[in-house]
């Protein structure tokens, strides 16, 4: 009985912790579908992030939870990029166009619609912001992503 009480207390602590809801979402990333992002790029000279995901993939959920929820990431994406989100199950044609099958993966296009960089995997907020800077500053023209991360 005493043990059950201890576990009851632990469970209550877990539930109470639910009141701690984490950072505010600040409206979230303004995701577009790929055709809408292409159309928007005709009017706005911005680089584009094409984000390939599957709704079930837990690493895609990690990106949503850890990175796309962060105000600084949201602000940076919404201000400096056009963000296209492609569900590879529903939009397989876009996946085939970019030869993308890995999730989560990222293809960056410059303001003219030309692919300039692609990568994959889960990025925490700071590393993802660095990735956005790598593309927006056009550092890819002179450095590899690894060199850029190391500050060379």
């Amino acid at each position: 009985m005493r043990r059950l009480k201890i576990f009851g207390l632990m469970l209550a602590l877990v539930l109470a912790a639910g009141l701690w809801a984490g950072p505010a979402l600040a409206g979230g990333v303004k995701w577009l579908d790929y055709p809408a992002a292409v159309a928007a790029q005709q009017k706005q000279a911005k680089p584009m992030l094409v984000y390939f995901h599957l709704p079930y993939c837990y690493r895609c959920k990690d990106m949503k939870r850890k990175t796309y929820s962060q105000p600084e990431v949201i602000s940076r994406l919404n201000t400096d990029f056009l963000a296209a989100k492609v569900d590879l199950e529903q939009e397989s044609a876009v996946g085939e166009k970019f030869q993308a099958e890995y999730t989560p993966s990222y293809v960056f296009l410059d303001a003219g619609g030309k692919e300039v960089f692609r990568t994959k995997g889960v990025f925490g907020p700071q590393r993802f912001l660095k990735l956005l800077s790598y593309v927006s500053s056009k550092a890819y023209q002179g450095k590899t992503w690894d060199q850029y991360q190391q500050g060379d």
């Binding site: 469970l11 877990v14 912790a17 701690w20 984490g22 950072p23 850890k66 929820s69």
Partner: peptide, 14 residues
Amino acid sequence: GVSFRPTTKWLLAF
């Protein structure tokens, strides 16, 4: 089982 993420960095499970 139940799992709960109180913040983006924490995961609790029971």
